[in-house]
Nucleic acid binder design. Structure first.
Lengths: 139, 139
DNA sequence: ATAGAATAATACTATATAGTACTATTTTCG
DNA sequence: CGAAAATAGTACTATATAGTATTATTCTAT
C-alpha cells in the first residue's frame, strides 16, 4: 500500500507542479531540492540518508540538477573524498513557490484527517523508517 | 517520508529476496505477481489500478515477465480491446516462497507495533490512497 | 610508518516509471 | 445508423533508481 501511495502521489504531485507553472524541475528533483532548501552544503552520502535514495541514484540526479543550474559541487577542504552540494541563487528563489504546491498536496493527502490523527500517523511513519534503516545498516 | 520509506523498503526487500534464494524475479515484479496471485485473468488497466502503476509502466514490465515465462497475454472474447493477463503454473508455484519473504518483511516493518496500531495505521493508509485516487480521477 | 580496512564518489549497466502520441476497438447519442 | 467520444493497449522517449566495480582518499591498528 505504501508503494501504491507513493506512485499515485507522485503522479498527482507532478500534475500540481504543472498547474502551478513550475516547469523547471519535476517531483523527484523537487524531493532533493526540498532537503537542500532546509540545509545545503551537504555531502552526497548525507543527502542520500536524508532523501532515502541510494547514493548511486544521486550521482545522475545531481548531474541533471547541476546541468540545469540548480546547484554546484564544491570540494571539502578537510577531507578531499567529500563533495559538498551547494544550491545556486536561482534554486533558492524557487523555494516559496514549491512550498505552496507542497501545502496543496498535503491538503489532498490528509483530507478528512484531524490534526491529532496526522501527528499520530506521522509518528508511525517515523517509527517504520527507523525500523527499516536499522535493518539496512546493522546487517 | 512516504517516498523515503518506499525507497528503503525496496532495497531491504530486494536483499531479503536474495537471501531467500529467489533470483527469478525482483521486488517490483513481485509486486505485480502479488496482485495476480490473488486474482489473475485481469485486464492491464485493472492491474494498473490494483498496483498503482501507470498502464504504460505495465506494458514493459509485463513484457519482461512474459519473456521469463511468468505469464501470458490472452484475448478477451467479448471485447477485443482488452488483453487478459494469465499466470503460468511456474508463476503460481512461487507464491508460497514469496509470501514467506513478505511476512519477514512485515515483521521488520512493524517492529514494535501492537496489532491495534497496525490496524489503525493501515486504515490511515487506505484513507490516503482513496484521497489520492479521487484527486487523480475526478479532475 | 605503513598495510589493510573503511569511506566518498563515480562509471557503467539494467530495470522501473510515466508521459505523449498512436492504433484499434467499443460506446454513446443525435 | 453513423460520427464523435471513450476505452484498452502499445511504441517511443526521457528520467529515476539501484547494483557492481572502480578510483581516490582517509582512518586504523600494529
Amino acid at each position: 500500500m505504501i508503494s501504491q501511495i507513493k506512485q499515485v502521489q507522485g503522479r498527482v504531485f507532478e500534475k500540481l507542479l504543472g498547474e502551478a507553472g513550475i516547469e523547471e524541475f519535476n517531483g523527484p528533483q523537487g524531493r532533493i531540492l526540498y532537503v537542500l532548501w532546509q540545509e545545503d552544503n551537504l555531502p552526497i552520502v548525507e543527502l542520500s540518508r536524508r532523501t532515502g535514495l541510494a547514493k548511486t541514484t544521486l550521482t545522475s540526479m545531481l548531474d541533471r540538477l547541476e546541468a540545469r543550474g540548480f546547484l554546484n559541487r564544491g570540494f571539502d577542504k578537510s577531507d578531499r573524498r567529500i563533495i559538498r552540494i551547494i544550491l545556486t541563487d536561482m534554486a533558492r528563489s524557487m523555494k516559496d513557490k514549491y512550498n505552496q504546491v507542497s501545502e496543496d498536496m498535503n491538503k489532498i493527502f490528509y483530507k478528512g484527517f484531524s490534526s491529532d490523527e496526522i501527528t499520530q500517523f506521522e509518528g508511525y511513519l517515523q517509527k517504520i523508517l527507523d525500523n527499516l534503516y536499522k535493518e539496512e545498516n546493522n546487517k
